[in-house]
Structure formats: structure tokens, C-alpha cells
């Protein structure tokens, strides 16, 4: 007997005017699983993330996560349910410090009461300290030098560092599901390998973190994913382990242009 899947997306569809960017996609994800999402540019991978996180309402279909129905949920509700994400093009607040960016990620753990924030300054300082400790812990895993630069603005940090900060922002709230949109873009093979090691390390520490990973680098997909879904023109082309998927002729045709 298998446990109920963590995430169930059924017949998820999103169209923009006449363009169907996501076409009846059904995906399931088990707890603790790493799912790779691959497909050519414009095949609907990022659209899937945007629909899942509530940025675009789905035209049709439903999303269930844990015991909740997230169909049509707002992004805030999706976050509270335990799904966080990174963006394809880094969306950190550049003029804020690393700490501030991570604290935005920890939004739901922080006390936003007026009385607490304006008058209980000591308790606020303690909460800030605790948040800083949590932020340092995460940064120590992904990019130890950045832990020492916690209060520097993100604008002064190199692109690679920013990507790692963005992943930490998505992890600091201890989500159940992490959506990574091309985390290795702009990284060397070495840096990518490191990043994946770090992710696996985090998953080991957090216990039951599940990940959906959009990635163009097939070696990464081969190494870290348990299962892959291949998208093309918004539709699921096929699904299976990387080994199964990579030998599928349809996939090779669509993706690699091979006959």
C-alpha cells in the first residue's frame, strides 16, 4: 500500500488568449521525491510553476497538496500551505540586505503585530536574532562566505551568490515542497554540482522536503531526480526515470530534434 501523494495536479490547463501554455497536465509527486521537469523552451514549465503558486489562475483543472485543495488559491495561501519557489530570473530585492531577503522568505514565522513591532523592541530584537541565526545556518550550507556578509545589500553580491540566496529564501520557511526554476542557469558545471550536493544535504537535514526542478542541464537531472516529466507544447510527453525518459524516441524528437 502506497501513501497518498503529496501533490496531485489533475488536468491543469492555462491559456493566454488563443495560446494554450499548459494543456491538461496531470502530475503526482510523492513526499520526499525529487521530480525533474524538462522540455524545450516555451513548453510550459515555468507556466506550470506560475499556475501552481497561484500567480496565474488555472483555466481548468485542479491542484491538491497534502490534505488541501489549492485550485485557484492565491500565492499567499500556497506559501502558507508549504510551497515555495525560486524564479527563473532572480527576483531578490536588490537594495535590501541578504538578511532582509531571507526574512521576507520567513514571513509567516515572524510576528507582524503593531504592538510587538513598535513597542516590544527587545522581543523584536530577539526574533531578529533568531532569524539571523536560521539565515546563517542555511547560508553556511550553500555559501559560507555569504553568511559573514549577512547585512550587506544583495546588489553587491555576484550572480551565483544571488541564486544561492534566493534558494535560501525559499528554504528558510521550511517548506514541504520547493520549486526550483533553472537554479543552475549561469553557473559552471562545478558550481552546479556543488549546488545540487547542497540541496541534497538540505533535504537530508529537513527530512521530508520534496522538490520539483526545472533544469536544462541533463547531467543534473540524471544525478538528482527520482523521476522526470517531459513537457512539450504544454502537454506531458512522457514520464519516468531519467533513464527511461532519455531513451524515449518521442522525447528525443521533440527535445533534441533527433529523428
Amino acid at each position: 500500500m502506497t501513501p497518498a501523494p503529496l501533490l496531485v495536479c489533475a488536468d491543469l490547463t492555462r491559456s493566454f488568449g488563443g495560446l494554450v501554455a499548459l494543456d491538461g497536465l496531470s502530475v503526482e509527486l510523492k513526499q520526499g521525491e525529487i521530480l525533474g521537469l524538462i522540455g524545450p523552451n516555451g513548453s510550459g514549465k515555468t507556466t506550470f510553476f506560475n499556475v501552481l503558486t497561484g500567480l496565474y489562475p488555472a483555466t481548468r483543472g485542479e491542484v491538491r497538496f497534502g490534505g488541501l485543495t489549492l485550485t485557484g488559491a492565491r500565492p499567499q495561501a500556497v506559501y502558507r500551505a508549504g510551497i515555495t519557489r525560486t524564479f527563473q530570473r532572480s527576483r531578490l530585492c536588490l537594495e535590501l540586505s541578504i538578511f532582509d531577503n531571507l526574512a521576507v522568505g520567513a514571513h509567516q514565522q515572524l510576528d507582524h503585530g503593531l504592538y510587538f513591532n513598535l513597542l516590544r523592541r527587545r522581543a523584536l530584537a530577539r526574533q531578529a536574532d533568531a532569524t539571523a541565526t536560521a539565515a546563517r545556518e542555511l547560508l553556511e550550507i550553500f555559501d559560507p562566505p555569504l553568511a559573514a556578509r549577512l547585512f550587506e545589500p544583495v546588489a553587491g553580491i555576484a550572480m551565483i551568490g544571488r541564486r544561492r540566496v534566493e534558494i535560501c529564501r525559499a528554504l528558510i520557511s521550511r517548506p514541504k515542497l520547493l520549486l526550483l526554476d533553472e537554479p543552475s542557469a549561469g553557473m559552471t558545471a562545478d558550481e552546479t554540482a556543488h549546488l545540487m550536493d547542497d540541496l541534497l544535504e538540505v533535504r537530508r537535514r529537513f527530512g521530508d522536503l520534496s522538490i520539483i526542478l526545472i533544469e536544462h542541464e541533463m547531467s543534473v537531472i540524471a544525478r538528482v531526480t527520482d523521476r522526470c516529466v517531459v513537457l512539450n507544447y504544454g502537454k506531458k510527453l512522457c514520464e519516468g526515470t531519467y533513464a527511461e525518459v532519455s531513451t524515449n524516441t518521442e522525447v528525443r524528437q521533440a527535445y533534441l530534434g533527433l529523428a
Partner: peptide, 24 residues
């Protein structure tokens, strides 16, 4: 200089990203 100001900063700088981290 509190979480309130931080939430406002997040709203000002990137509404979409802020919404994805639960900021109303």
C-alpha cells in the same frame, strides 16, 4: 526598523515575489 518596514519594502520592490512568500 521592524518586520513591518521589511514587509513594506518587499511590497514596494517586488509585489509578485512578496506574494509568493505570503506577504498580503
Amino acid at each position: 526598523r521592524s518586520w513591518l518596514g521589511l514587509a513594506l519594502d518587499a511590497v514596494r520592490l517586488d509585489e509578485t515575489a512578496a506574494a509568493c512568500f505570503g506577504v498580503e
